[in-house]
């Protein structure tokens, strides 16, 4: 009898173990639900981990108000189908003061609408553990993040002083006010995520699939102009381009890619051919050398 298992089953078993540990050892866990493909995989893993019981923790979505419309529609559908409690947190005050990436720059805008809103949301819910869908293969500073990533009372990450993590034994001990960010997909790659979505027929936001969309082409960027402040400047015109999103974020800061991939196998085929990493189309990571690490230290996911 052969006992080898495929890499996807090995990753799945590991992630389920992590989800169960956290749900059993923490008082108030929450899943940070970002609506993207990684969240969709995390949701499926949570369904599997606690079956036949329902998912035993709520979802928290940090809504910057600049997310794509299709993302919000998908979020509402998912929450209703799963029957989980969905908490949406928005930094209303910053928005009332006119926060947007064009006025503030991406770094300050992310700081207010994502990081601050996230930390406020976690504090308001008194959550001591928060699941995130981040993967170590996304970016160099993430390659060193633990599965259980300790945050002090202010939600800060100290990359030079992380708890050692051995085997599948996770240290869940924290003091009141401290918390843990948990990354059950740490060891998954983008390719693993897509293959799992294909294999498991996991629903994802339609923006991932290529179709003809009205967009603004500016240099190398293909922009879906959902926000009025992102509209055409002098001399620019909207064009119809067959395109899709490779990763989902806020509409002003996440570009589309030209693509014909309108099915998951086609997306996978495209991925095999694409030689650039998936976060390249994110404006925020390139602000300056090591910018992702700086954001993470301040509490960004």
């Amino acid at each position: 009898m052969a006992w080898e298992i495929s890499h996807l089953r090995a990753l799945e078993a590991e992630s389920i173990h992590i989800l169960r540990e956290v749900a059993s050892e923490f008082q108030r866990p929450v899943m940070l639900y970002s609506i993207g493909k990684d969240s969709s995989v995390m949701v499926r893993l949570a369904q599997k981990a606690f079956h036949p019981a329902p998912i035993p923790f709520p979802f928290l979505h940090v809504d910057t108000s600049y997310k794509f419309k299709e993302m919000i529609e998908f979020r509402e559908r998912q929450a209703a189908e799963l029957g989980v409690k969905l908490i949406v947190n928005t930094n209303r005050k910053a928005l009332d003061d006119g926060a947007n990436p064009l006025r503030l720059g991406t770094e300050r805008c992310c700081g207010l609408l994502k990081t601050t809103a996230l930390l406020d949301g976690l504090r308001a819910g008194n959550f001591d553990a928060a699941f995130g869908g981040a993967r170590r293969d996304e970016e160099k500073s993430r390659a060193k993040e633990r599965v259980y990533s300790f945050r002090d009372g202010l939600g800060q990450w100290d990359p030079k002083n992380q708890r050692p993590e051995l085997w599948n034994i996770y240290n869940s001990r924290i003091e009141p006010g401290e918390s843990i960010r948990v990354f059950p997909l740490s060891n998954w790659t983008e390719m693993d995520v897509w293959q799992y979505i294909h294999l498991e027929k996991i629903p994802i936001v339609p923006l991932y699939f290529a179709k003809e969309r009205e967009v603004l082409v500016r240099g190398n960027s293909v922009i879906l102009t959902e926000q009025s402040f992102m509209g055409p400047r002098d001399g620019e015109k909207l064009q119809t381009v067959k395109c899709r999103m490779r990763s989902l974020g806020c509409s002003p800061c996440t570009g589309a890619i030209r693509s014909d991939a309108d099915t998951i196998p086609k997306i996978i085929a495209e991925l095999v051919a694409v030689r650039n990493s998936e976060r390249e189309n994110r404006v925020i990571d390139h602000d300056r050398e090591g910018s992702m690490e700086l954001k993470k230290r301040e509490g960004y996911f």
Partner: peptide
């Protein structure tokens, strides 16, 4: 060498996980 401190000091001070695949294996 992912972390800033490592780039500054030119040393590897932590465990970094890397992922790759060949047609045979992950």
């Amino acid at each position: 060498d992912g972390l800033r401190a490592e780039r500054e000091q030119g040393i590897t001070i932590d465990v970094a996980y890397r992922y790759f695949a060949t047609p045979k294996r992950k």
